[in-house]
Design a protein around this nucleic acid. Structure first.
Lengths: 168, 168
DNA sequence: CCCCATTTGATTGTGCACAACTAAGTTGTG
DNA sequence: CACAACTTAGTTGTGCACAATCAAATGGGG
């Protein structure tokens, strides 16, 4: 039986993959959470969490959007956005109102207070960039790779979801 | 009044940063969640979530660890691990027992069922690697950058936490 | 007009991440 | 020994992510 419970016996190439595999997804996860910690500190002054900050970024850029479009920009669904938007509304930063044209749609727009918050948020990116210690081009290249990775994973996920559909 | 509610007026270099800034952290976040979707599908057969899978990876590698050490490997604290480990224990994959030497410490180790699960998990990494569409060296390079990024962010976060302490 | 598929949000339930706090055990010092 | 400082897990509360489900509104055929 021995004390070492794993990595015994044959352990073909799989085992190496297993380690590598942990590395990439784990590194990604860890980097994402490390970003979260830094943002948490910087955004506390603004009274925003990081996902709320992302929503505000989109609204600052586009002004006013239905929940659906907001979710498409952020890759988030209503299950995540609905409570988040309610908290932003409770904080007085956004308002939600049913579209008159289509009663199913809820348009989210900034309050004056929400729009004004942008001025203070302008200071954030520079401090984040400084915290990464990366140059602009290095960030840009990393971003390009991550986006490519995301696209590949999304494609794989949907293909995996319907598995071997072979839709003729 | 104009339709575009923001990005008007002066918008100095800050605005460009703001956009770039969103890109890198958002890309990271999106990639992390995209990975989550792919893992979710692959791990469903094993009855594991992705964070549970990470815990099992560490246990398969090290055999048996106190909660503290597990958390250091995964960058997670007891607030996250305690309920997660309870779920793994309820699933019959691990056991938790107080160390006799130090009653504060809880050692987590694999059950036979948990150890056996490794065989089925060996299939996962290859499918993940395939889903990324990345080569091994490209994955390796990306991982290196992400780890460097995480280190820089961690350093910035702790420095930020005590802010301008100037501890004399 | 009525029926039905689709679209859009909201709700519910599960699980993770993390801060703040508590409880119990351990260690060092007088 | 007594006692304070520290360590290790656990608990509680808040918020995000996502699957599943529901309800309301819309729009297109019969």
């Amino acid at each position: 039986m021995t004390a070492t419970p794993s990595t015994a016996r044959q352990d073909p190439p799989e085992a190496g993959y297993l380690r590598l595999d942990q590395q990439i997804c784990f590194s990604l996860n860890a980097a994402s959470r490390a970003f979260g910690s830094v943002y948490r500190v910087l955004l506390k002054d603004l009274g925003l969490t990081y996902p709320q900050y992302l929503v505000m970024l989109v609204l600052w850029e586009h002004g006013e959007l239905p929940v659906k479009a907001l979710g498409q920009h952020l890759r988030l669904d209503s299950g995540t956005l609905s409570p988040l938007l309610k908290r932003l509304e409770a904080a007085g930063l956004v308002r939600r109102e049913r579209s008159a044209r289509d009663e199913r749609s809820v348009r989210v727009h900034l309050t004056d207070e929400g729009a004004a918050l942008r001025e203070r948020a302008l200071l954030v990116p520079r401090r984040i960039a400084a915290a990464t210690g990366f140059g602009l081009d290095e960030i840009s290249e990393l971003r390009e790779r991550l986006d490519r990775l995301t696209d590949a994973l999304d494609a794989a996920a949907t293909a995996e979801g319907q598995d071997g559909v072979d839709p003729r």
